[in-house]
């Protein structure tokens, strides 16, 4: 069963070093752009979860090239840079992988709205999970509104992120 998840559908071999680095590099880049100071009022609190988009995309299309260890390292880096409680993003990205991996065969080769719906469900769960976790960590009931808007922004921006990641994937790895 474990091997089947990866082999359906079979992932084409990628020997090019740069192409093999693409998923890790783009996910790390997503972590970096999520901490950049964009000077739009109120943006910082509502920054979309870029790493979630990258982790979802690559777990569906190339789970072999974005291993758990890379997700763990990138998640920790994001936590350390953002100053958020350490481990939270690592946990989020790893749970994303474990949640998506089991269903990836339903997503590969499907139309975009289907993939987007999957991402919407994931984001709703992730945002709620993050909110609960932060409430527990701070031992207080935190404002839920920012989390809702942040989730909505993340879902709204996903088509663009998915398009860019798909283009990069085709350009560097060829079709597949």
């Amino acid at each position: 069963m474990a091997l089947k998840v990866f082999s359906i559908p079979a992932l084409p071999r990628v020997n090019n070093g740069a192409a093999r680095m693409l998923p890790v590099a783009t996910t790390l880049f997503a972590a970096l752009i999520s901490v950049l100071p964009v000077q739009i009022p109120g943006y910082a609190a509502l920054t979309p979860v870029f790493t979630l988009m990258a982790a979802y995309h690559w777990t569906i299309y190339r789970p072999d090239l974005l291993p758990p260890l890379a997700l763990f390292a990138i998640g920790l880096t994001e936590d350390l840079l953002a100053g958020s409680p350490i481990g939270v993003n690592a946990l989020l990205l790893l749970l994303t992988r474990s949640a998506v991996l089991g269903y990836r065969r339903y997503f590969v080769n499907r139309t975009f709205p289907f993939v987007w719906t999957g991402f919407t469900l994931l984001t709703v769960a992730a945002m709620f999970g993050l909110w609960v976790l932060h409430c527990l960590l701070d031992l207080s009931l935190l404002d839920f509104r920012n989390t809702v808007i942040r989730g909505a922004l993340t879902i709204a921006i996903f088509p663009l992120a998915s398009f860019l990641l798909g283009r990069a994937q085709r350009a560097v790895m060829g079709a597949g």
């Binding site: 999520s34 609190a45 509502l46 979860v49 953002a82 958020s84 909110w131 932060h134 989390t147």
Partner: peptide, 9 residues
């Protein structure tokens, strides 16, 4: 850099 997200400033 700033802390992206709803939980840290």
């Amino acid at each position: 850099a700033n802390s992206g997200g709803a939980f840290v400033r």
